[in-house]
């Protein structure tokens, strides 16, 4: 199996950024996820070919990290932080609200494939707790009501690109610090939006 020309070119560029090609495994796994919407077995096989590893080795790496989703994942992955700082300020209630609104329990994906819901461990937004991420785009200062409204809005508007700045404006509250100017970048799936991976995020 190979990807289309454009993706293969990106893959080759990623491999080229490292002194040893094995180092490209992690970004290539993101690339594979962006291709298929989740990390498929075929995706892992291609990463193995590109890095000279066995499929089992690639699976070993992929399964170590929580962000490589080897089972199908919803269009919107809502990760609600429930680590200590967010817990202290009501993160558990936000998680309950999100689960109730979406009808998707913690750790599950809805049958319609729209939402996946998970409790996250600390996402580095403790000063703006409680916080959550949608496709790893951060929203801080979220109340249970905000969480419900956010999920409703996503379900109704189905944005193709999830922009953290936009969602923060609409549904967020206190921030850990001043974020500075609004960014255009955002995520197109349950993969962190980071330019070199070929996912959205090249915005200003």
């Amino acid at each position: 199996m190979t990807w289309d020309r454009r993706t293969e070119d990106r893959a080759a560029a990623i491999v080229g950024r490292y002194p040893e090609k094995r180092s490209a495994v992690m970004p290539l796994l993101y690339l594979a996820m962006a291709e298929d919407g989740y990390l498929s077995e075929d995706g892992m096989r291609r990463v193995a070919q590109l890095t000279g590893l066995s499929n089992a080795q690639v699976q070993g790496v992929a399964s170590f990290y929580t962000m490589y989703k080897r089972d199908g994942v919803g269009e919107y992955l809502v990760s609600v932080c429930t680590s200590i700082s967010c817990m202290l300020l009501g993160g558990d209630d936000v998680l309950d609200a999100v689960a109730a609104e979406t009808g998707v329990a913690d750790g599950e994906t809805g049958e319609d494939g729209l939402f996946s819901v998970e409790h996250g461990e600390c996402i580095g937004a403790c000063g703006g707790a409680p916080a959550l991420q949608v496709n790893y785009e951060l929203i801080e200062g979220v109340t249970p009501d905000h969480g419900r409204a956010l999920c409703r809005w996503l379900a109704e508007n189905r944005p193709a690109v999830v922009r953290g700045d936009d969602l923060q404006e609409r549904f967020g509250g206190r921030r850990s610090f001043d974020w500075g100017p609004v960014e255009a970048g955002g995520a197109t799936g349950a993969v962190p939006a980071f330019g070199p991976l070929g996912t959205a995020g090249e915005g200003s």
């Binding site: 077995e41 066995s54 499929n55 089992a56 699976q59 399964s63 170590f64």
Partner: peptide, 27 residues
Amino acid sequence: SDEISGDPLIEFKGRGNAVEVNTFPDE
């Protein structure tokens, strides 16, 4: 399998308390 025989068809999978030894599916 990795160091001696050079055919790492079994590997750790998962993390923490959920680590297991396994193969790649169907391989």
